[in-house]
């Protein structure tokens, strides 16, 4: 039986071997997966905000903390940073009518994560970001495959 773990808003989980890490109902949030194909270690975070501020409590809700926390958890499970690659999905803008100043949080999340990964030398092998439709993400930690299910029924593997 495959273990399934639901990753709530602002949470992350790292697993060695086979598991399905899922996060449901991403709008502007991002499902960020890190994966080490040599050691079969994978993790998924549900990121909500682009960056932490000074003195904030460590939490995977921030993109910078999420990467840092997942990397150190993966290293504890035997991963080498140079092996790790990334996949991401999410960052949509759900509202058609922008009556409120939502500050394009989805785009900012995507940009922030790309910058952080680049500065860490982690390559993004595939992504599915932006648009105006919500997504759910299923990440298979042994193969590194990610299933993206849109709220309109469309599914794709990235």
């Amino acid at each position: 039986m495959i273990h399934e773990h639901l990753i709530g808003i602002g949470e992350f989980r790292v697993v060695k071997g086979l598991a399905v890490l899922k996060t449901i109902g991403l709008g502007s949030c991002i499902g960020l997966a890190l994966y080490d194909p040599y050691n079969k270690v994978g993790g998924l975070a549900h990121v909500m905000l682009p960056s932490s501020k000074n003195g904030t409590v460590k939490s995977a809700k921030y993109a910078d903390h999420a990467v840092e926390m997942m990397l150190s958890a993966m290293k504890r499970l035997g991963s080498k940073e140079r092996n790790i690659v990334a996949k991401l999905a999410g960052g949509a803008q759900i509202f058609k009518h922008m009556n409120m100043n939502l500050l394009k949080i989805g785009d900012r999340n995507v940009d922030a994560i790309k910058n952080i990964l680049e500065s860490q030398g982690i390559k993004i092998v595939s992504e599915d970001v932006g648009g105006d439709v919500g997504r759910s993400v299923y990440f298979y930690t042994d193969s590194g495959k990610m299933l993206v299910k849109y709220s309109n029924g469309v599914e794709l593997w990235i």
């Binding site: 808003i9 109902g25 905000l49 501020k53 949509a92 509202f95 009518h97 009556n99 919500g134 709220s151």
Partner: peptide
């Protein structure tokens, strides 16, 4: 004024929750 969306119940509000999440 209201903003309208048809989507996953959480996806509709996560951008708003992000504003207080900090």
């Amino acid at each position: 004024p209201p903003s309208y969306a048809k989507d996953y119940s959480v996806a509709v509000i996560d951008a708003l929750l992000a504003q207080i999440a900090d």
